[in-house]
């Protein structure tokens, strides 16, 4: 190791070689963070949620969206702590209800780009009912679900996406419940854009998030991640870097997947990455807009009883 490098870095680590405000300026992505928010983030060292945050910002940047016009709505859980760090309109709601809050916000402000940010438990367990109905309505919201197959914030309980036989603090003898395939569920419920990738492939997430946000109707992006602190420790899956590596080895692109034989496809256990479903369907608030116009066109005088 060349001497000059070590001497430069012998500084006390807390002081850091770069003043804090300069760090925010050192990349376009960092400029989307909230300068008045305390960093580093709340997540465990190595957690994939921070990677997804980077992807989301780059996706928003790539679309050239106005920060004033972007709203992030989150439920409760590790993933739901993401919005507070970013310089958009951010709403941190109650567990499982992000999409219901976001539905009201989208109806009030159909012009805004709204992204609901949830973990797998937040979206699929307590939030499942709102998830399928938001998809059914095809309301213009992007659901970004970071799926690490566990409830991380509360310490490692099984979630609706925990794989069979894997352990959790509430499945000490192995999970006996078959997990939800989130993307299939969204597609069946009516989502008009569904894509999946992993935190090992953030550039794919950038692309899919940009497409999802541009999609008029209800979009789902499933970002497969990991939780080495609870799920990884309980199931002895190693460090964050180890679990990151498994995401690479244990996933396959959709194009490669499509080339598999039927039999291979049936026994495939790898996570399929890609745009899995798209559909052309009118977006909910636009349809309601035409309804309001129609009511007006039929010249039904608004009944203001008092004003004759």
């Amino acid at each position: 190791m060349s001497e000059h490098i070590l001497s430069v870095h012998d500084l006390d680590v807390n002081e850091g070689q770069i003043p804090r405000e300069d760090w925010f300026e050192s990349s376009d992505t960092l400029q989307h963070l909230r300068k008045n928010k305390r960093f580093p983030t709340i997540w465990c060292s190595g957690c994939g949620i921070g990677v997804v945050m980077g992807s989301l910002i780059r996706a928003i940047e790539s679309l050239g969206l106005e920060n004033n016009n972007v709203a992030l709505v989150a439920g409760i859980g590790c993933t739901a702590r993401m919005p507070v760090y970013m310089d958009y309109n951010t709403l941190h709601t109650t567990h499982g209800r992000a999409l219901a809050f976001a539905t009201g916000l989208k109806i009030a402000r159909p012009d805004m780009k709204i992204i609901a940010i949830m973990g797998d438990g937040d979206a699929m367990a307590i939030g499942g009912n709102h998830f399928i109905h938001a998809a059914r309505r095809n309301i213009g919201i992007t659901a970004l679900v970071v799926n690490n197959s566990i409830y991380g914030m509360t310490g490692g309980q099984q979630s609706p996406t925990t794989p069979l036989d894997m352990r959790a603090t509430t499945a000490p003898y192995g999970n006996i419940e078959p997990p939800f395939p989130i993307c299939d569920l969204a597609s069946a419920a009516g989502a008009t854009y569904v894509a999946r990738s992993t935190v090992y492939h953030p550039l794919e997430l950038d692309k899919y998030l940009a497409q999802a946000i541009s999609n008029d109707g209800f979009s789902l992006v499933e970002a497969v991640s990991y939780c080495h602190t609870t799920y990884g420790r309980i199931n002895k899956l190693g460090s964050a870097a180890d679990m990151m590596r498994v995401l690479k080895e244990n996933s396959i692109s959709k194009s490669a997947y499509d080339k598999l034989s039927d039999e291979e496809r049936e026994f495939n256990t790898k996570t399929v990455r890609g745009v899995l479903h798209t559909k052309k369907r009118p977006e909910y608030t636009k349809v309601y807009g035409t309804l309001v116009d129609r009511v007006h066109e039929e010249a039904i005088k608004p009944r203001n009883y008092g004003g004759h």
Binding site: T94, A100, F101, T103, G104, L105
Partner: peptide, 17 residues
Amino acid sequence: MEDEIASMAAIIGGSVG
């Protein structure tokens, strides 16, 4: 909405909007 929990959430979202 799909239930009253969602209804209460939606009106808060609408008010914020």
